[in-house]
Design a binder for these strands. Structure first.
Lengths: 206, 206
DNA sequence: TTATGTGAAAGTGTTCACAGCC
DNA sequence: GGCTGTGAACACTTTCACATAA
């Protein structure tokens, strides 16, 4: 049970499994079951077993899963056995908060480049990062080979900055601008817009 | 075609329709079609028509939809014909960035309360907000009747703060802590964890 | 006995395609 | 002619339930 195309919706759950497992490891658990993992995440045991079965047989009947082993397998599947470099594009309030966030490193990521087009911000230091001029962005991204960008620029320029990032070799964009980005096939975009989530919730409130 | 239970996945798309329509209005468009709206969002025309049909017949055959009218209908459906008050819990880097974000107001929300337990932050002003002591949180939330909270506290305390919020009458939580929150039935939680999205994307990169 | 991995069944969601109306 | 609203067809996802193995 290995080389089918695994549904994207399954891939989307794997990082959550990984997160729960890492928490279990921290708590000293050595073994777990689909039932226990599911209860922690609000997901059915059957779904967890089915999801994992796309990639191999990681459990032992009667026993469950080794926490450590399953973490390693998930990290391999998600290509997290390396540290991924990120470019931060736009260093406003949100970009600055992301630049200071300590939670990236032990989950597989680090910001290595930061850009802004505001002369007041260029040269500014945030931790070990120095904000660089957006004008040099394509060159610097190509030089460093960074493949993932976090986009925290105003919506009004998000699409044109995106085009520029794609042209420079970026292959995945985490978009914080409240707008749908158009990209060529093969480029991955995920959008985070908290207000869409708030508006989703208000449907259920009165 | 009105009073079925509308699938949650449909509700989740409505805010995106609203966002695209508001952009169209800004551009001066008075009329649109399911095709045009879909192209802007990367969604099929059939799906948009089907989604809207859960709530009524908003279009005219041969003509399409009035942008202004459809905006009004969606705002009514999502209960956005009022301004929703928000409580911000945790005023670290991310919480501060949210407090300063200008994009809430014209999409139906405003932050009216902010809390932290760090004495250095209590009393601090951010725009018109004053950071209050977490100890007074339940009382203040009850007084003001705020129903929605944005949770930007460390993962280690997120669950206990959540319990406290629910006890105080909060009915919806936008959770920024990288952890699965457990809440009683009827309480709505949406989680925003950028690293889950990054880890989802790396599956497709090499 | 316990808990996995998995076909089959059930349940959801999306797209098709066209009657009906502007 | 153009575009909506919608049953029917299709596709996808989840759950069930059990043979199998530790």
């Amino acid at each position: 049970m290995a080389e089918q195309v695994v549904p994207d919706i399954v891939i989307g759950r794997l990082p959550r499994y990984l997160q729960a497992l890492e928490r279990m490891r921290l708590e000293g658990l050595q073994t777990t079951s689909s039932l226990e993992l599911g209860q922690r995440l609000g997901i059915s045991a059957a779904q967890i077993r089915k999801d994992l079965s796309h990639f191999g047989e990681f459990g032992k009947q009667g026993t469950g899963y080794s926490v450590e082993f399953l973490i390693e397998q998930l990290r391999a599947i998600l290509h997290l056995n390396r540290l991924w470099d990120l470019a931060l594009v736009g260093v406003g309030d949100l970009g600055s908060a992301l630049a200071r966030y300590q939670g990236f490193t032990n989950r597989g990521f680090r910001i290595v480049l930061a850009f802004d087009n505001d002369p007041k911000k260029i040269g500014k230091r945030i931790g070990s990062l120095v904000v660089e001029d957006s004008a040099t962005m394509p060159e610097r991204i190509r030089q460093t080979g960074v493949k993932i960008a976090m986009l925290t620029v105003p919506a009004s320029v998000a699409q044109q900055v995106t085009d520029c990032l794609v042209e420079a070799g970026i292959r995945a964009i985490l978009n914080y601008a409240p707008i749908h980005l158009v990209v060529p096939p093969g480029i991955i975009v995920e959008t985070i817009d908290p207000i869409l989530k708030l508006q989703h919730m208000t449907y259920y409130l009165d």
